[in-house]
Simulated assay, not measured.
Amino acid sequence: MLNPLSLMSLSRRRWFYGCLSTFVALSLVITSANPTKAISIGDIIRGGIQVIQGVQIANMSDEDEVEFGSQIDAELRQSEIRIIRDRELASYIDQIGQRLAASSDRPNIPYTFQVVRDDNINAFATAGGFVYVNAGLIKAAENEAQLASVMAHEIGHINNKHVLRSIKQAAIERGIVTAAGMDRSTAVGLGVQLALNLPRSRNYEYEADESGLNTLVNAGYAPIGMVQFFNKLLEKGGGSMPEFLSSHPNTGDRIASIQQALDPTTASQGDGLDTVAYKSKIRSLVGRY
């Protein structure tokens, strides 16, 4: 049995070695980082995305995710896409988007909806509430419910943090995540790549479809709009298939799954099925783009 003095001596030694271990660990993290980007102890303590939290990027706070999404957005707008600067068109798309966002699984984060000057039928989303809708998709939709269904699908990707989860997986597969995590510029670069070409896993697409359909219904739109638009695009086939449908899970299976989730007696109940009103509205807004 140890006497009190021996216990105190042992305790002090443990404290000393504990401090020494912590110091060595921090030294290793700092010295093993990318030599072009110094990492401070403050960064480590704060646990930002560029350090420890890089390994756990899918679990970042809503506030951090919105900030991260804004950085991806800035990079996208600077080098990858052209945003249409039309106040009336932007207001119309934002009105639809905010209505959907308020009825989504994550209504408490800010959402930003932007129209991309691109005639391809496509839409995509990044982290933190950023959604992008191509002018070509707005023109291709027959009514507002169809357009809203695609926007709801993209909100579904945000609700399920698919971009964040994909960034984490891609970083692991490429071996760029270490004990020090990822630096912010690397993470943003991956975010840009994945936003434009999100790997279409079966689970992600079904999750976005299910979440999007619930959002569409909760927002008061007729859910049949999702089936109508997906069927319309499926009929096109070939090279005209948009990215959000050209995915790993069979598109016909996805449509069948959506149809099974609908009650046929209420599928056409709700807003957004007036084709004449929609075409008249977008003719003046998108016709010149």
Rank of each mutant, 00 (worst) to 15 (best):
L2Y: 08
N3I: 02
S6T: 11
W15V: 15
W15A: 15
G18V: 02
L20N: 11
A25L: 14
A38I: 10
I44N: 02
R46Q: 10
G47R: 06
V51H: 03
I52E: 03
Q56A: 15
M60C: 08
M60D: 10
M60F: 04
E67V: 14
Q71Y: 06
I72M: 01
I72A: 08
E75D: 11
Q78K: 15
Q78C: 14
E80R: 14
R82K: 15
R82T: 13
I83L: 08
R85T: 02
L89W: 01
S91T: 12
Y92T: 05
I93A: 01
I93T: 09
Q95H: 14
I96E: 07
L100G: 06
A101Y: 05
S103M: 00
S104E: 05
D105A: 13
R106F: 00
N108T: 11
I109V: 15
T112Q: 09
Q114W: 05
V115M: 07
V115I: 13
V116P: 11
V116F: 02
N120E: 12
I121G: 00
N122F: 07
T126H: 10
G128D: 04
V133W: 02
N134G: 07
I138S: 09
K139F: 00
A141R: 01
A141L: 00
A141W: 05
A145G: 10
Q146A: 10
L147A: 07
S149Y: 00
M151C: 13
H153E: 04
E154Y: 10
I155C: 01
I158V: 15
K161P: 12
V163Y: 03
R165A: 13
K168P: 00
A171W: 03
I172Q: 12
E173P: 09
G175V: 13
T178S: 15
A179E: 06
A180Q: 03
G181Q: 02
M182V: 14
M182P: 01
G191I: 00
L198S: 01
L198I: 04
P199K: 13
S201I: 06
N203I: 13
Y206P: 09
D209I: 00
D209L: 08
G212W: 04
G212R: 03
N214K: 13
Y221S: 05
G225T: 09
V227L: 07
Q228A: 03
K236E: 01
G237I: 07
G238L: 03
S240Y: 12
S240N: 15
E243P: 01
L245Q: 02
S247Q: 08
H248W: 09
G252S: 14
S257R: 08
I258Q: 06
Q259W: 07
Q260E: 09
T266H: 04
S268G: 14
Q269E: 13
G272V: 02
D274Y: 09
R283I: 07
V286C: 13
